[in-house]
Design a protein around this nucleic acid. Structure first.
Length: 491
RNA sequence: CGGGAUGUAGCGCAGCCUGGCUAGCGCACCAGACUGGGGGUCUGGGGGUCGCGGGUUCGAAUCCCGCCAUCCCGACCA
């Protein structure tokens, strides 16, 4: 706006039509990530990486608690192996990067850089699994993958990205399905608890299914601009990969059987989701659970503050750290308090603690919430406990706010005209009866840009004993619907 | 990959149309002083292969060609 503002963040406004520019500004100014010399590849900077580490820890805890273990598989996939599962290779072929030379020598067989690891892991599982006693295999890996994307955006879609991919093998179809849904629920709970990001968890349609899967489930979140984002997927691969990679075992009944496998993953994309779910005009807002700094202490530099205020600030910091709070004491002399306030707000620190000479006289500090900007004084006595409560309050308030936003932007609509109007004007989810036909879904997408995000597990489903659809008319074609589906324009 | 736009200091831009002094401005940065409870003030400084590569010209940030990158809109995708 004015010449002074470029160092400021006041022009960051998710409410405007330029949400996308706002997003890019936040990513860069908050120092979450930066562009690299390689097309489509970003550098995750320390502040952004710290968020990823917190996400990793929270997820890893949950994986281990459900019996999964970590391992690591290679980055390269021999071409011949990649070609084994037909649907899988067709789905990923356009996005695969290849290594054709090693040093000066042409490779006898090109190596794909993994776009995902079903192939390598499936190959290894074939070696490791002989008997029903070897099952289940419950392995996760934290890794990077490469997909040659045409359009990239920091965190949301980059050529190389970090993720976790779980790969499990089971004795029965029922167990594999149970695992698939268990992880879907784990993701949902994780997103809501840690990221304060409410999600719709449900099943993908045939056309949106993972290449090679029998069934794909996803969690879908709603961003601040009303577009949906797929935040995680869980696939039941049936016996497709087991057959392609000969993962066979001898069963309890002595017969030779193919294993039932699953795979599931979430990526650094989640960070993009956090930014776009909670951010506001002043920049980032981080849920306390994944905030690298949950509290920033700003000492008011006045008079002989180094002798009076600073020691007090330091002891508060030490006490908070001792109780497990992530704190940064911003004692940099070069910046004014006002500058620091704005800076840390832009970087999304959930709670700011101000302490100055006046506060020390009164035995108090000033606490300011990032989400509401509410300023309140808190007595020095019992401060640590109070901060803990405040952080929990903020975490919950962010989830409530996001939930309310989603509810306000979710509309039920059964006529196609109404559907088109809503999609055209007001972004968000539209919930409509759908016939289950892929062609119908494709037409909706072509005409409105909206895609079927998923059919929630608890959505209304209509079919008779023979499996025929018996629901109300499909929004597009008018034939009886099989279920109520959630549509949105998506990232 | 199609359509459009942009690329000049860390960031945001002017200069280009109509080629020519030492490439400029704001913020940021460095030094010092005064300041300090919502992005302070003053003084003095440093920083540029003008995205990259060719070409035209006595001379190119400026004109021409090619490439690359980024952004927006589509098609494709976590």
């Amino acid at each position: 706006m004015t010449e002074k503002k470029d160092a400021l963040v006041t022009e960051i406004t998710p409410q405007t039509e330029d949400f996308s520019q706002w997003y890019l500004d936040v990513v860069r100014r908050a120092e979450l990530a930066d562009y690299s010399p390689v097309k489509g590849c970003m550098v995750i900077r320390p502040y952004g990486y710290a968020i990823w580490e917190l996400i990793q820890q929270a997820l890893d805890r949950r994986f281990k608690a459900t019996g999964h273990v970590n391992a690591y598989f290679p980055l390269f996939i021999p071409q011949s192996l990649l070609l084994r599962e037909k649907e899988h290779v067709e789905g990923f072929a356009p996005q695969v990067a290849w290594v054709t030379k090693g040093g000066d020598e042409q490779l006898a067989e090109p190596l794909a850089i993994r776009p995902t690891s079903e192939v390598v892991i499936g190959t290894m599982y074939a070696k490791w699994i002989q008997s029903w006693r070897d099952l289940p295999v419950l392995i996760n890996q934290w890794a990077n993958v490469v997909r040659w994307e045409k359009v990239t955006r920091p965190f949301l879609r980059t050529t190389e990205f970090l993720w976790q991919e779980g790969h499990t093998a089971h004795e029965t179809a029922e167990e594999a399905q149970e695992e698939t849904l268990k992880i879907l629920e784990l993701y949902r709970e994780f997103a809501e608890t840690e990221l304060a990001m409410p999600v719709v968890s449900g099943e993908k349609s045939e056309s949106e299914k993972f290449a090679g899967a029998s069934r794909t489930y996803s969690i879908e979140a709603l961003m601040g601009d009303g577009r949906a984002m797929q935040a995680g997927t869980s696939h039941n691969l049936g016996q497709n990969f087991a057959k392609a990679f000969e993962i066979q075992f001898q069963g309890r009944d002595k017969s030779l059987q193919h294993a039932w496998t699953t795979s599931w993953g979430v990526s650094t994309r989640l960070i993009g989701g956090v930014i776009m779910t909670h951010g506001d005009d002043s920049g980032l807002i981080l849920p306390p659970r994944v905030a690298p700094y949950q509290v920033v202490i700003v000492p008011i530099q006045r008079g002989n503050w180094q002798e009076t205020v600073l020691p007090r600030a330091q002891s508060i910091r030490d006490e908070l750290v001792k109780s497990g709070v992530r704190v940064f004491l911003d004692d940099r002399d070069a910046y004014t308090p006002g500058w620091k306030f704005a800076e840390w707000e832009m970087r999304g620190v959930p709670l700011r603690l101000e302490i100055g000479p006046k506060d020390i006289e009164k035995g108090q500090v000033v606490l300011v919430r990032r989400d509401t900007r509410e300023k309140a004084v808190a007595p020095m006595a019992g401060l640590t406990a109070h901060v803990g409560v405040q952080l929990e309050t903020i975490q919950r308030a962010l989830l409530d706010r996001a939930l309310k936003f989603r509810e306000e932007h979710t509309i039920r609509e059964s006529s196609y005209e109404g559907f088109k109007q809503v999609m055209d004007g007001r972004p968000g989810f539209v919930v409509s009866p759908w016939c289950g036909d892929t062609a119908c879904e494709a037409q909706i997408k072509a005409e409105t840009q909206a895609t079927l995000r998923n059919i929630p597990l608890d959505a209304a489903r209509w079919s008779d004993a023979e499996g025929r659809a018996t629901g109300p008319p499909c929004l597009k074609c008018g034939r009886p619907a099989v279920a109520e589906a959630w549509f949105a324009k998506a990232y």
